[in-house]
């Protein structure tokens, strides 16, 4: 039964742009208004980014603090190729994702020589170089602190203009589906079991004769490719790349998303990413109307996150699992009428 819930949700999400439903409080305009569709597209992109990150964090147990580097590589890579060099979108996207995977292979091979907390620190340092480079605007390529707006002339007509926001929404949804299919395929493949095996006990896998180093490197490269794909779509949805996508804050946000949703579970990180991105955007818009620190989205999200770590281990997914036995128990209660 529950197996069809994701499919039903997907159909509903795909059909959503035909709905003129107005949900006051949740969204400013009707569901199919460009503003709401763009907000939802960003949410879907972050769902994809968080799930891709969870391949490292939840599945392989690698607490990378440098994932933003590959998201930025995707966003800036595609933006630079299109806006500066006049490439067409699809080859630019393909080359960018491959280049990000290559970069991950190079940096990952160094970073994976460490483990545990040292790995976190090293990935953080590598990503910081990306952040610094982007801010320095080398050769006028990245636009520095202002960011680099996407030159729309290089894009397919279907992705340009407010009336075509719906296509960006579908693109984001498609990306989410692709990332989900890849991550779930990894979960089912021997690679996924080996990764979780590594997370739980490295020695056990080493005994089986596999090189933990190579397997982890493979995970790092795959996760980087998914991050770059998400970065490409993020640049398309928001119309360019800005230094924020290269900052450590973004990686921290991904961690928060994964933990809030339930790291290492099938749907947890995805749900966490969508929820986080929604709250982040909504709270920013409501900011002026909320009192004191509640006007700062990060204050609310950071506090929620800390509370979740203590009281809801396993995140949303854990909450669901904990509620289910209770529900089943009530369902089994004999009905006096029936008896």
């Amino acid at each position: 039964m529950t197996r069809f819930v994701p499919l039903a949700l997907l159909v509903a999400a795909a059909a959503l742009p035909w709905s003129t439903l107005d949900v006051p409080g949740l969204f400013d305009g009707p569901l199919n208004s460009p503003g709401t569709l763009q907000l939802l597209a960003v949410c879907l992109v972050f769902g994809a980014l968080a799930l891709g990150y969870d391949l490292l964090f939840g599945r392989a147990g690698l607490l990378s603090f440098g994932h933003a580097l590959y998201i930025a590589a995707g966003a800036y890579g595609v933006d630079i190729l299109i806006s500066h060099y006049g490439w067409a979108l699809w080859p630019a996207a393909a080359v960018t994702v491959l280049a990000a995977a290559g970069l991950a292979a190079l940096l990952g091979s160094v970073a994976l020589r460490t483990s545990g907390i040292a790995f976190s620190m090293v990935t953080l340092a590598f990503a910081e170089v990306g952040h610094i480079l982007v801010n320095r605007d080398p050769g006028g390529l990245t636009g520095g602190e202002e960011g680099l707006p996407m030159r729309t002339a290089g894009l397919p007509d279907a992705l340009v203009g407010v009336t075509n926001t719906v296509n960006l929404y579908w693109l984001a949804l498609a990306t989410l589906v692709v990332v989900t299919l890849v991550v779930h395929a990894v979960d089912r493949a021997p690679l996924g079991r080996t990764l979780t095996g590594l997370r739980d006990d490295e020695r056990r896998v080493a005994v089986v004769g596999l090189s933990p180093y190579k397997i982890k490197l493979l995970a790092v490269v795959l996760a980087a490719a998914l991050a770059a794909l998400g970065g490409v779509v993020h640049a398309l949805v928001v119309g360019g790349a800005s230094p924020h996508v290269a900052s450590s804050d973004l990686t921290l946000a991904l961690i928060v998303m994964a933990v809030l949703g339930g790291a290492g579970t099938r749907w947890g990180a995805l749900a966490g990413g969508i929820l986080y991105a929604y709250l982040d955007q909504r709270l920013a818009r409501l900011g002026g109307r909320l009192p004191g620190p509640l006007g700062e989205p990060l204050f609310v999200l950071g506090t929620l996150f800390v509370l979740a770590v203590y009281f809801v281990p396993g995140g949303l997914a854990g909450l669901r699992a904990r509620l289910r036995p209770a529900r089943d128990a009530t369902a089994r209660e004999p009905h006096p009428e029936a008896a």
Partner: peptide, 30 residues
């Protein structure tokens, strides 16, 4: 924040991440 999560090092890191995000945002709001 740290002591109740005794020996759970990943959770401890996560809590400091959350505290850092929330704390900086708090300073910003003040």
């Amino acid at each position: 924040l740290i002591r109740p999560l005794y020996t759970r090092h990943t959770e401890q890191v996560l809590v400091t991440v959350g505290l850092s995000l929330a704390g900086v945002a708090l300073l910003q709001s003040v």
